[in-house]
């Protein structure tokens, strides 16, 4: 019974989201609203301004370089978070265990 209710709920959710998609301007052409003047600027001036022929790389490291710096700092934060969860308390536990022994 529970499973049937969950399946009905998820199918309803899929239909609702699909109706939302059908109302979106999704045509894969140059007229799509996501293909705006920013993209045209990148494609026309990217090679001259950065020297890189790969526009994705030009945007990652030059036009939006500060964003990528933040990305690397997210990786650094991941290392710090995992180390703070896994390494330090386990050492304390070991020391306590040795003291009890």
């Amino acid at each position: 019974m529970k499973k049937i209710i969950i399946w009905i709920l998820f199918i309803a959710l899929f239909l609702i989201l699909s109706i939302g998609i059908f109302d979106m301007p999704t045509s894969p052409t140059l007229d799509a609203p996501s293909y705006n003047e920013t993209i045209h600027y990148y494609l026309e001036n990217g090679v001259n301004e950065t020297g890189a022929i790969n526009i994705v790389t030009a945007v990652i490291t030059d036009y939006r370089g500060f964003d990528t710096l933040g990305e690397t700092i997210v990786l650094f934060a991941a290392i710090v978070a995992v180390s703070s969860v896994l390494r330090i308390p386990s050492k304390k536990n070991e020391e306590e265990a040795q003291k009890h022994e």
């Binding site: 996501s34 990148y42 939006r64 990305e71 997210v74 991941a78």
Partner: peptide, 20 residues
């Protein structure tokens, strides 16, 4: 005709966040 490069660029950030 070139595809839109900006979504690919933005998704890179998302992949890094999901890995972390």
């Amino acid at each position: 005709i070139f595809i839109n490069p900006l979504p690919s660029v933005l998704i890179l950030t998302g992949i890094v966040v999901v890995v972390s």
